[in-house]
Design a protein around this nucleic acid. Sequence first.
DNA 1: GTCGGCATGTAAGCGGTTACATGATTGG
DNA 2: CCAATCATGTAACCGCTTACATGCCGAC
Lengths: 227, 227
Amino acid sequence: MSLRYAILGYLSTGPGTGYDLARQFDTGLGWFWSARHSQIYPELKRLTEDGLITRDTTMVSENMDKYIYSIAPEGLAVLRDWASKPPTYAPNRDTERLQLIFSDDSPESLRKHLETHRDHFRRRREKLQATIDTIRAGEHERVNSRLARRGPEEAALTLQLREMAYVGDIERADLEIAWAERGLAWLDSHEHKPKGRQQGAALAAPQAAGVQQVGEGGVPADASAAP
Amino acid sequence: MSLRYAILGYLSTGPGTGYDLARQFDTGLGWFWSARHSQIYPELKRLTEDGLITRDTTMVSENMDKYIYSIAPEGLAVLRDWASKPPTYAPNRDTERLQLIFSDDSPESLRKHLETHRDHFRRRREKLQATIDTIRAGEHERVNSRLARRGPEEAALTLQLREMAYVGDIERADLEIAWAERGLAWLDSHEHKPKGRQQGAALAAPQAAGVQQVGEGGVPADASAAP
DNA sequence: GTCGGCATGTAAGCGGTTACATGATTGG
DNA sequence: CCAATCATGTAACCGCTTACATGCCGAC
């Protein structure tokens, strides 16, 4: 149940409405968590009942209210407590990889698969880059409002952690793009000679430390000699 | 609902029991999907009812049966159809990153966080490497039984896709390890001078293509000049 | 006037986790 | 004899998605 902490985390950078949260989570990027408004509103209610956040009501009209939520000291404590615990890792579930390894009966679609993968991470990379650029330029409102409440030493740490998180995700995206492009290059070198015995294009990344290389290419020579 | 396809995929490499599936998914590694037996058994029942798999019963004793499932032609078709569709990407949900960016109120735990991260991906990398080594050596039973049913051309593609999947995941693990180690190095260079103004250790990976570099280090000089 | 963005909620259903439950076989 | 592994199931619960539902406000 990280949603709770994601909300507390957001509100720790300043007050906001449910709609603000929904926009951040739903457009997702710049963010490391995602949620729909149908999940957010009930959770805000629960957090208020638990005394972790407070709610201010501003009347918009007779039959329409707007609620601005702020984090309470108890909420800040809960957030800090949670963040200080070492991370746990959910079991891996990767639909893309699953599809990939069972695509060997439908090779025509492989190219499209890899192109989709590459394009997905290109888009993601662009958005991450744009966000970290904004933070670096000191123009990210939420980050700034968090920094404003802190001394210069704490501020440096806040920025360092954002930097680590975004740079890490950008590198992930770069890796996925390079991976897909290597796959596409392999396809290129094989598509006009589908009967090919030649195990051409290098598969493993040149710089990938510690990856054991096999003789000729990605596929061992005796591969089909298996039972 | 990828579980259904993960099961079909597994059974496409040969018959197996629910328990076999549970072991593969639950120990997770070597695999790109995960599930508990409590989810697997009902799904096997549904797949049988839908005619995608068949069930053979071997009586173990009077009041205990054992069921061996095999993929049906309809199941193979459904699997192939699913695998040939371009991948879709679930919204990003990353507890670890979320914890990281809100650790700026509890810096003492940062080191442990990064060490846990590094160790997690080291273990994962080891298991992935062991599996791909087995496949490369032609000693992976499931992969071999899949290869046995196919001609040499198809076999080459099967192996290529496994290679891509495992190498891709190994590179991901390498990236995470390197990322965590860079973070730890940064911590080292800051722990004995917590008041430090000096923005020491490089943050961005030296080889990360296209990552915009900032002047001195990971953090822009005017960072705390924000409102 | 209607369309898109702001704003807030509820309900059904699904996929996954945790816990409960039972029994056979094998080896120390 | 007891523990571990093999083997199969059910039930309660939780988090997330999809869909349903309503209403304000400003701009074109």
